[in-house]
Design a protein around this nucleic acid. Sequence first.
RNA 1: GCUGCUGUAGCUCAGUGGUAGAGCGCAUCCUUGGUAAGGCUGAGGUCGAGAGUUCAAUUCUCUCCAGCAGCACCA
Length: 845
Amino acid sequence: MTDTRFDPSQADGRWQRAWDEAGTFTADTGSAKPKSYVLEMFPYPSGRIHIGHVRNYTMGDVLARYKRMTGHEVLHPMGWDAFGMPAENAAMEKNVHPGGWTRDNIANMKAQLKRIGFALDWTREFATCDPEYYGHEQALFLDLYEAGLVYRKQAQVNWDPVDMTVLANEQVIDGKGWRSGAEVEKRKLNQWFLKITDFADDLLDGLSDLENWPEKVRLMQENWIGKSRGLGFSFDLSNGERLQVYSTRPDTIFGASFVAVAADHPLARCVAEESAEAQAFVDLCKRGGTTAAEIEAGEKLGFDTGITALHPMDKSRRLPVYIANFVLMDYGTGAVMGVPGHDQRDFEFATKYNLPVLRVVAAEGTDADAPFAGEAEAGDGRIVNSGKLDGMSVDDAIRTVINQAEADGWGEGKTVWRLRDWGVSRQRYWGTPIPFIHCGDDSGDTCGVVPVPRDQLPVTLPEDVDFSVPGNPLERHATWKHVACPQCGGEAMRETDTLDTFVDSSWYFLRFASQPDNRPFDPEEVAKWLPVEQYIGGVEHAILHLLYARFWTRALNRIGMIDVKEPFASLFTQGMVTHETYSRMAGGKTVYYAPDEISREAKRALLSADGGEVEIGRVIKMSKSKKNVVDPDAIVAQYGADAVRWFMLSDSPPERDLPWSEAGIEGCWRFVQRAWRLFGQVDDDATGEDKALDRKTHQTTAAIADDIEALSFNKAVARLYELAGAIDKAAPSASRTQAIRTMIRLVAPMMPHLAEEAWAMHGGEGLIADAPWPKVDPALLVEDEVTIAVQVKGKLRDTLTVAKGLAKEELEALALASDKVQRSLGGAEIRKVIVVPDRLVNIVA
RNA sequence: GCUGCUGUAGCUCAGUGGUAGAGCGCAUCCUUGGUAAGGCUGAGGUCGAGAGUUCAAUUCUCUCCAGCAGCACCA
């Protein structure tokens, strides 16, 4: 009755067209069904879909299809994070326009995604480089400006000399640009900022409600926001000035033996102006480097300024003031009190410069004069050697000191954040133009910085731009920036900075929910769809994108545009797809080979070109430099979409890395064919009941539903293997036919093309994509027989198959009646019998 | 250094206070009109190490070891 093999090269395209033509995956906002918004982080259109995208989108797709089958109206959209520097780099290298390059890439990638059969609502597709999209973004930016959440200030910025742009703090890694890897320079520029710090407390508090976010991500955001409480206070200095410091441990104030300021602290600069020696030290600190390795080995260094500071609570003491390399200017006030006894950094510093190490906290059961064991003691204890603080707990002492500082007026309790306002200015072409106009020279006689009037939005990018030299083409464009001031009509200049692309991705999920022409989104439709029920993406976005999106949602909430505060109810961060590497030493260098250049045997790998052996390297993240990449298009062409999807879901738990292997995809291909053969065995003439198989079918149905809801796709896959095995072994019966029909629906979210083909073959109504998830009979979930273990002295000697719920006494009698038990007892006296109903009998002799 | 995650078959992973499992791989054999194959059978495990609780620990508790990831002179 059936073809003997499933042919994806025929079936895949046929069903993909069928879904398109029926508009199967178009979300209906008017639907009365419960809604479900499933979203994967939209891709940057680099030109090719990466296998990591395939894994990410397959997970979301299985969930989306499953939700449809369980009666939900599903919104599962896709779009393009289309602004950014690669397009400009391509423009410079290949002399193509960033827009054209991006459009071509999008067309390519969209075709690739379609070939994998994702259940996406393509009617809502957009790219962030569409003027309609970024025009609305400009309007939102003006809204936030009017609400006081956007401001401009001169700020020292991280300047990437290769990309010729400003980088956010988060984009500087170990002092180098995150993209270019170039050493970052400090420059002062007028920059646009978003007031994310206004929401610092709320963003932090909100984390505790995000129960369906990975603990790891919440922790990373918490650390990033970095809230700390302490005492801000000032020292009176011997040069007549005052020095502000911040400490989270004011309880240890009597243990202070020095004060230290950062090398770029105003006081340090002041000292350096008068002392060549100090200047030399400041220069040394700046060259000091900030990489992890350097910090690791980093010795604490200081320069004694000769200035002294008066201890605020013990006027008999003056503390030396140092410039120190371990004090950071951009945290707190850039100056600290050094308490060597109870801070490891201060301890190392004091040891080096022979400063007193005072004990002011004594741990439980230790002496007030106990010596230090070569390191600082940062732990809890009672306060000692601190005058009237003596005997207090650390917490009490902190409160007492803060209270006294406030009462005496030399300091106050203070909360310090690590989080800074978000600098969004980028000196690039391929981004959203910032909708402002500069009238005159900011001297005050002219209008200054003026918002672009709403009716002139969007401010679009000029098409005729020149990328032959580095820097910002908007800046040097002949006409684009020259405009009339909207207020006075005089000559004025457009802002030539564009927005950080993280702004684009901070609200795209709202635009997916609704896309009116005349405004960014329709609040009512947003209210219907949001929050995103399940968001899936890479953990590399744990801080930046996710924090910014949370911030934008809150900001739009504050100005009354939307009701939600948290955009993503559940977050899932999937693991990477990895692959072993193949390499060989040649001419003193390691040369890598791509998987398709290799023929892989059980224990070795041979290079197809010359038949010689190559070294099999570790299984690592796929990267171009190691050549351990596989091309989704090629494998889909070879094995069909369903086998590739199946591989993406099987083996590894989704949050962990998935090692790609040739053997693995071959196995998936075979299972697709095995399932196809099984589905061909539907026999509507078969009669008779197979209770055990019925149970297995219903148990599997229930378990897979749970697995998919929990995104445990690898477990669902394992259960389908089991079910296939059980059906294979079962004799023909009505139950078996039913099991096969059920299994077709169970695989539908994962192998949709195969499932449609089988569904059609067996006369299923409509598309299986619209079919309901199989019903579960709760009565069939429980077994009525159980296998009991019989142990003698803790060792298994026999098993018994008995009715479920059999009484203890009967179990004991049955166990003692066993020959095997009697033999292993060998006539020994029975001391005790432990009976656990439905589990085991243990006879202790 | 701090935090988190992970250690179960050759590989990738399920699982459980009471009989240790799946897929792939491997070995033997069968079929060659399911053939870019299909099937039978089998080998393979100190459940990371140690201690504790228990009649019974791979599972619970504690300590340690290893691997991976993130953060890191944040006062």
